[in-house]
């Protein structure tokens, strides 16, 4: 049967930083072709095709974030595969090879992670699930 693409609306202007991306103007209607869990979604908008940040989109229909999983406060163990330096105060600065707990996998690609007593955001693309099990 025909493939029905979901329509999203741009909530703000966005200027692309590479040829793979497309510019957005607030109010643009986009059809989403692929939702990558790293927070970049592949879309088409009229004749343009490319990647846009999911954080700048809202669904045209349906409840907000219907697909987004609930927080899992127990946490899942992930390893950082790339260092990231926080640019905002609610983000984490971590080196590659650190073990953290993921407690909320957000569609915008910024996951809430916990390390010790602290929580903060970290880019999901720099995380890899470990084979480790949490101690009881």
């Amino acid at each position: 049967g025909p493939i029905i693409l979901e329509t999203y609306r741009a909530i703000s202007d966005y200027s692309k930083n590479s040829k793979r991306e497309v510019d957005l103007s607030a109010g643009d209607m986009l059809e989403i072709i692929e939702k990558n869990p790293n927070g970049w979604w592949f879309c088409q908008c009229e004749s343009r095709r490319g990647w846009v940040p999911a954080s700048y989109l809202e669904p045209l229909e349906g409840p907000d974030e219907a697909e987004e999983p609930e927080p899992n406060y127990e946490g899942e163990l992930y390893e950082t595969i790339k260092a990231y330096t926080a640019t905002q105060e609610d983000e984490f600065t971590l080196q590659a090879g650190e073990i953290i707990e993921v407690i909320h996998k957000l569609l915008d690609g910024w996951w809430v992670v916990r390390k010790g007593e602290e929580t903060g955001y970290y880019p999901s693309m720099f995380l890899c699930k470990t084979g480790l099990r949490k101690e009881a």
Binding site: N38, Y84, H104, W110, V112
Partner: peptide, 22 residues
């Protein structure tokens, strides 16, 4: 290739539209 997503983290939501989740 355009089929591959950008290799850098996507931008955070615009500050005025960000939901507080932590």
């Amino acid at each position: 290739s355009i089929k591959e997503p950008p290799q850098n983290p996507p931008p955070r939501p615009p500050a005025d539209l960000r939901r507080k989740r932590l």
